[in-house]
């Protein structure tokens, strides 16, 4: 059964979830702290924002692009929330709408720059990253501001003993799976990522596909920013700095190759969980956080080498 799965169509996803299971089961057997309810919900809380933004990033990597501006979008979202939210539920609702709109707007700008102006995704989103970072720092040069208790507690609380961030993570996962697997647009995304010229000749409107994907990525980054705002309970203009490269790492560890065209968000979730679980283990083992950079680099290279060996 397992062998069949390991050779079948979904072998990459099966492999990555097997690795995830091993990484979860072995320390759980050894350490009661690791398998405690508190620690597991802690891991889920920590993974939530990275996992969510990585799913948006998956859309872009599938198109053999990349989005470096997601971190700035996250920072801007926390800043906007902490600046515009009041205790009144209506202002909270409007602030959330504002953040989602801004995220989607930035994403669609990226998409237009990449498709219509024909900039390389790296340069377009790099410019956007600097621009939006500047806007976030302009609004709030230092971390601070006010995030109402009700918003923070809703976003970071529990629903029937399940952490809300984890529920949001699963909702985004389901939403993105539906888009990628069940809609025509999803097919177009895979087709464009696989071979852009062929997709164009087959009648796919590549520009539209790209603009849509970047818009989704920006929107999802804003959702991640909202979750993070609830966790840090303030607006921090630099909180998102590590997200662009971390999310790309999660996508690639999750089995979507950098060249695009195959893979998907299911693997990305496992990629993000693996990164978060390893950090958590190193923390529990009291290993200096400095080692985590090295470990992250090694996970990424190991994953890529394994995938490239399997391709042969």
């Amino acid at each position: 059964m397992l062998f069949k799965l390991l050779r079948g169509k979904h072998r990459t996803v099966v492999t990555i979830y097997l690795i995830l299971a091993v990484l979860f089961i072995i320390p759980s057997l050894v350490s009661p702290v690791f398998r405690s309810y508190e620690n597991i919900s802690n891991i889920l809380n920590q993974t939530a924002s990275l996992g969510i933004v990585s799913m948006g990033q998956t859309f872009i990597v599938l198109l053999s692009g990349l989005d470096l501006s997601v971190g700035s979008v996250i920072s801007l979202t926390t800043v906007l929330c902490a600046t515009s939210m009041g205790n009144d539920p209506l202002t909270i609702f409007l602030a959330v709408l504002l953040c989602l709109g801004v995220g989607a707007g930035i994403g669609s700008l990226n998409g237009i720059l990449v498709s219509k102006v024909k900039l390389s995704p790296l340069i377009a989103t790099l410019g956007m990253m600097a621009l939006i970072q500047g806007v976030a720092l302009q609004i709030r040069p230092y971390p601070g501001g006010y995030v109402p208790r009700s918003f923070a507690e809703t976003v970071t609380g529990n629903l029937y003993h399940v952490p809300v961030p984890a529920i949001l993570l699963v909702l985004v996962l389901i939403g993105t799976i539906i888009i990628l697997r069940k809609t025509v647009l999803g097919n177009y995304i895979y087709a464009t990522g696989g071979n852009e010229e062929n997709a164009r000749l087959a009648g796919v409107n590549i520009d539209k596909v790209k603009i849509f994907s970047y818009t989704i990525c920006g929107l999802i980054a804003a959702v991640a920013g909202l979750v993070l705002t609830g966790r840090i309970r303030s607006g921090d203009p630099l909180v998102g700095t590590a997200f662009p490269l971390d999310s790309i790492t999660a996508v690639i560890v999750g089995g979507t190759p950098f060249a695009g065209g195959q893979g998907g968000v299911e693997g990305t979730l496992a990629g993000a969980l693996i990164i978060a679980m390893l950090s958590n283990m190193l923390n529990l083992l009291n290993v200096s956080s400095f080692y985590q950079y090295i470990v992250k680099g090694l996970i990424l290279i190991t994953a890529v080498v394994i995938y490239s060996l399997r391709e042969k």
Partner: peptide, 25 residues
């Protein structure tokens, strides 16, 4: 001009200059 303004200008100028010859390909 504060750091924030410098970043915004940098982002805009990178995009603007590269856009100038992006379409020529």
């Amino acid at each position: 001009i504060p750091h924030s303004g410098r970043l915004m200008a940098q982002g805009l100028i990178i995009i603007a200059i590269v856009s100038l010859y992006a379409k020529r390909k």
